[in-house]
Amino acid sequence: MNTAVPNASLPSTAGVRSALPNMVDDIGQTPLLRLDRVAADLPETVAVYAKAEHLNPSGSVKDRPARRMIQEGRESGAFRRDQTLIDATSGNTGIAYAMIGAAKGLDVTLALPENASAERKKVLRAYGAELLLTDPMAGTDGAQRRVKEIVEAHPNRYFYPDQYNNDANWRAHYDGTGTEILEQTDGRVSHFVTGLGTTGTFMGVTRRLKEHDPAVQCVGVEPATAMHGLEGLKHMDTALVPGIYDPSVADAHRTYDTETAIDMTRRLAQAEGLLVGPSAGANVAAALDVARSLEAGVVVTILCDTGTRYLSDDFWNDE
């Protein structure tokens, strides 16, 4: 027998004011961390800080542009309720789309090379995304071409954010990441160093920091070779160059080989307790090299994604 519950004792659902409606509202406002142990050789007048973007809800910096591109698509009418979001990505942007899509009830289809890791595909499928697997020999550029073909064949069925050519990508970093860096350093940032992939982070943060102070020096980091193992970064001489990239805003470029980046990735885990991916290792290696060239300065870089995404890679325990 069911017993009637008196109304007076029902808990109110209206009182939980500090709760977020979903994970999407927790994107951004990441901590800025001072790196001490890996930067122990620097003089006291030089500091290196890292923006902990791996602490975003889906585990990477890509939550910011993914949310912004979806928001702007909705507001402009480019992304209708009956459409499916489609994009090409082997990694973090896809996971961000899939997470946001799940939280907001949106359909998401992603093209990625067939040799992306099993755990990555499982994460995407766990969020409910549909996957199109493309030829490994063509890399992520091949996945991009596949998406373009599908969208051209069925223009009404899909919303294609196209992170490489969408200004919402860099604007997410102009308004978010860049502004947070200024606040968190009390405007004292003198150098910004980050890897170039879609170039959204670099373009957005650089524009925001230079608007604050044109003397801030901004350094783009690239893989040293066309073949590399730095997820998310592009070797601009041989890759499809993103439409949002304007090389003239960079003050300098630095190149790193995968092995150097991975050495730093291991050191960050073991000496700083930061389990992050190889592109973050490249960024920190570059930030430290920039810092070593200074007599005084505040150098800021980006920890792009979580290291748990790379556990099936063999590099963690090698020396």
Binding site: S90, G91, L112, P113, E114, N115, A116, S117, A118, E119, R120, P136, M137, G139, T140, M227, H228, G229, L230, E231, G232, G277, P278, R309, Y310, S312, D313, D314
Partner: peptide
């Protein structure tokens, strides 16, 4: 010669 996709280097396809 297959481009590396991080997280995918050591998987068969």
């Amino acid at each position: 010669i297959v481009p590396s996709i991080a997280g995918g280097c050591f998987h068969r396809w």
